[in-house]
């Protein structure tokens, strides 16, 4: 028996919104530790890694490890039926081929449930090596989304370069070039507005705008985003989901020929 209850169903809806551009279907691995998802997009350029801790749920029970393959478009349809303030309870029997989502309104005056067919997905699990990153940038997630959106107008790629002076985002294309530089700013009153850089050595890497833009769909999940970079290693873009876990995106760099 698997049962997970989340008072803020909108958090799960935000997670779905953040990954549906990249993935058509994915397996949710449920264990006593929580719910994990790991999947690459169809072109094998980016990877989504979601971790929702069991103790972040309002109720969590998982008697037996369970992998639930889901079509994310269908799952999106189910969550479209939920109210913004609804509580969601997900339930599945052991070895089941369906999962049930029950939505309850705040006042408990409306209860709806939707049963969705599960899929058998043959997804391989990847081992992600521990990396000593050259730099780790933490910045407001809204600012990151804005910069990526702005610079995407200029070209298909964005160079992210980080030095002790700050972080620079650059793009160039037919109409010209764009550069955005951010200095470290520590706002002790408003931690979420700070830009902090933990630098071991300067690094500059090039990434495709299309993927960076997709990642920023996770902005509503978190005030801050963490970018971890190292030469010849995928970029890690991490959004912490308060009290529940994290959503990470890995992106292979573009390499100069």
């Amino acid at each position: 028996m698997f049962e997970a209850r989340l008072v803020n169903s909108s958090t799960f809806r935000k997670v779905l919104d953040a990954i549906k551009d990249l993935l058509n279907e994915a397996s949710f691995d449920c264990s006593e530790n929580g719910i994990q998802l790991q999947a690459m997009d169809s072109s094998h350029v980016s990877l989504v890694s979601l971790n929702l801790k069991s103790d972040g749920f309002d109720k969590f029970r998982c008697d037996r490890n369970l992998t639930m393959g889901m079509n994310l478009t269908s799952l999106g349809k189910v969550f479209k039926c939920s109210g913004a303030d609804d509580t969601v309870t997900m339930k599945a029997q052991d070895y089941a081929d369906t999962v049930t989502f029950m939505f309850e309104s705040k006042k408990q005056d409306k209860i709806s449930d939707y049963e969705m067919k599960l899929m058998n997905l043959d997804q391989e699990h990847l081992g992600i090596p521990d990396t000593e990153f050259s730099c780790i940038i933490k910045m407001p997630s809204i600012e990151f989304a804005r910069i990526i959106r702005d610079l995407s107008q200029f070209g298909e790629s964005i160079v992210i370069s980080c030095t002790k002076e700050g972080v620079k985002f650059s793009a160039q294309g037919d109409i010209g070039t764009g550069n955005v530089k951010l200095a470290q700013t520590h706002n002790f009153d408003k931690e979420e507005e700070s830009v902090t850089i933990d630098l071991q050595e300067p690094v500059a890497l090039t990434f495709a705008c299309q993927y960076l833009n997709s990642f920023t769909k996770a902005t509503p999940l978190s005030n801050q985003v963490k970018l971890s970079m190292c030469e010849n290693v995928p970029l890690v873009v991490e959004y912490q989901i308060p009290e529940l876990g994290h959503l990470r995106f890995y992106l292979a760099p573009k390499i100069e020929e």
């Binding site: 072109s43 350029v45 699990h125 990847l126 992600i128 090596p129 290693v233 292979a252 100069e256």
Partner: peptide, 14 residues
């Protein structure tokens, strides 16, 4: 010109 790398080379299949 630059080419898009794929993730397969970075991660190991478990």
């Amino acid at each position: 010109t630059s080419t898009q790398a794929r993730l397969d080379g970075f991660f190991t299949v478990l």
